[in-house]
Design a protein around this nucleic acid. Structure first.
Lengths: 248, 248
DNA sequence: GAGTGTGAAAATATTCACAGCA
DNA sequence: TGCTGTGAATATTTTCACACTC
C-alpha cells in the first residue's frame, strides 16, 4: 500500500550480503509504528498481524514477513504486545535518539516544513533554515531562524545536524546537496524535482510531491480513456480488448 | 530511483488484463517529463535514453522499457525528439487539461501546499481550502479562500474539483475522505499518516512525509550499527557474518 | 483454537542482450 | 555506426500455506 517515491540508488546496495530488507518493508514498519502508538494511547495491549494489516491496508502475511526480517516479536496464538513491539520498531528505525535536521530554502515549501510539527514530534527537530535571499535571512519562522547559506557549515556543526532537507528550485538542488555534504550531513531528502547525487556515505532520498499528482492524473485519465475510448488505439496492441472491461 | 509512498490497493488492480504498467514506471514518466521540459527550455532537440537515464538516475533499459509500454516514440540510431516526447508524456499523464484541486485542512501543511506554486504550474490549480476551525474560515492564503467544511459539496461542484488533498490530523482523515467522495472528487491524496479507504472509482494515494525521514533514520542507524555493533546480535541469524563488510 | 514464523511458490519489476532500423 | 524496442533472463517482492507454539 505504501509506495514511496524511492530515493537512493547511487548509494547502492552493493556488497550488502544481508538477507536484504526491502525498502518498502521498512517504510511499512514506519507506518506500523504509528498505528501501534495509536493503539498504545488507546490502552490496547495486544494486537494481531491481521489487525495491523487491516488498519494500514496490507495483508497479514506482509506484516509478519516484514517483522520477521528483524526478529521474533510475537507470541503464537496470541499476537504482539503493543508496547513492546512499538518500542522495538522505534529502535529498528533509529528513532530512540533525536536526529537534528536543517532545511535549505526558506520559500513556500521550506517554510511549511519548518513549521510542520510532525517532524519534531517524531524525533526530527528542525534546527535552522538557510537561504541566500537577504530579504529572508534573519527572519524567524515558527521559532526557527533563517540564516544565510554561507553559515551552513558552522551551524550544522553546532547543532549536530545529520539530516538536510533541500527545498530550493531544481537548478540549485545539486549545489545545495554538495553544500550539505560538505557541512557533514549524513542524509538528505531532496524535495526538488531534480535528482541529486551524493558521495557514498550520504543517503539521498528523492521526494517529489508532483509525482503523486501526476500518478493520480494518469489513473483518472486512464479510467476515462478506458471507458470512453477503449478502441482509440491510444494504448497499443493487446490492451484493446481488455480495456472495456477494465473500468473497475 | 523514485519510490513513491504507494497509494492504493483496496481499489485493486483486479481484472486489469492490461499488460499492466508498473506504477513505478508511471512515476518515472513524470520525472522524465520534467527533465524533457528542462531540455526543451534549454533549446535541446534530441536526447537518447542513456542521457535521460543518467539525468534522472535510472538505467537506459528502464527508460526504454517504461516508454515502450505506451508506444514507439524514438528513432533508432538517433534517439527521441525532445519536444515530441515531452508532449506525448504529458498526454499520457493526463496533464493536457487542468485538474482542479481542493485542500481539506488549513493547518500548517494544508496552508503550505495551498501556497506552493509547483502544483498549479503543473496543471493542478488549487481552488479552495476547507476547515472546521471558525478562526480560519474566511481567511485567504495566497489568494485561496478558506471555507467551512460544510460548503465542500457546493464548492467542489462549482469549481469542478476532481482531486482532493487531505491535510487533517489522522483521526479525522477517514471522515474527510468520505466527505470528498460525497463531493464527487475522483482522486485523493492523503497526507495524514492514517491510511484511508474510498469506494471503487476513487483513487487514493497515501503520502506520508514522515516515512521518508524514518527511512533515512533507519539507513543512518543501520550504517552505524553495521560499523560499530556488527556482532551485537541486533540483526539476527545469518546477517551477522556479513555485517562487518557491509559498511558501504 | 488462534495466530506467529517461514520456506516455497507466485507475481512483479528490472536488466540484459541483441535484432532491426535510420 | 548508433541507439531504439523488446523477448527472455534475472532479481526482487509479495503471497501462500502450513508447521509450530502458546
Amino acid at each position: 500500500m505504501y509506495d514511496t517515491l524511492h530515493g537512493k540508488r547511487g548509494n547502492q546496495g552493493r556488497f550488502q550480503k544481508y538477507p536484504h530488507i526491502p525498502e518498502a518493508a521498512v517504510a511499512r514498519l514506519s507506518v506500523y509504528s504509528r498505528y501501534l502508538a495509536q493503539l498504545a494511547s488507546g490502552g490496547i495491549h495486544t494486537v494481531s498481524s491481521d489487525e495491523i494489516a487491516r488498519a494500514v491496508g496490507v495483508t497479514a502475511a506482509t506484516v509478519r514477513k516484514d517483522l520477521s526480517f528483524f526478529g521474533d516479536f510475537g507470541t503464537r496464538g496470541v499476537g504482539y504486545r503493543v508496547a513492546e513491539l512499538h518500542e522495538r520498531l522505534l529502535e529498528i528505525l533509529g528513532l530512540t535518539a533525536p536526529q537534528p535536521v536543517v532545511i535549505v530554502g526558506a520559500g513556500k515549501l521550506g517554510s511549511a516544513l519548518a513549521t510542520y510539527h510532525g517532524f519534531p514530534e517524531r524525533g526530527f527537530p528542525i534546527k535552522a533554515l538557510f537561504d541566500v535571499d537577504s530579504a529572508k535571512v534573519g527572519r524567524r519562522l515558527g521559532g526557527i531562524e533563517v540564516y544565510h547559506l554561507s553559515r551552513l557549515p558552522e551551524i550544522a556543526s553546532a547543532t549536530g545536524a545529520v539530516i538536510g532537507l533541500i527545498c530550493v528550485p531544481f537548478d540549485q538542488a545539486q549545489e545545495v546537496a554538495n553544500a550539505l555534504v560538505a557541512a557533514g550531513v549524513k542524509g538528505i531528502i531532496n524535495f526538488s524535482p531534480r535528482p541529486v547525487t551524493a558521495p557514498p556515505g550520504v543517503e539521498v532520498r528523492q521526494v517529489d510531491l508532483s509525482v503523486n499528482l501526476d500518478l493520480l492524473s494518469f489513473q483518472l485519465t486512464r479510467r476515462r480513456v478506458g471507458l470512453a475510448a477503449a478502441h482509440s488505439g491510444f494504448f497499443s496492441g493487446q490492451e484493446e480488448g481488455a480495456a472495456t472491461g477494465a473500468a473497475r
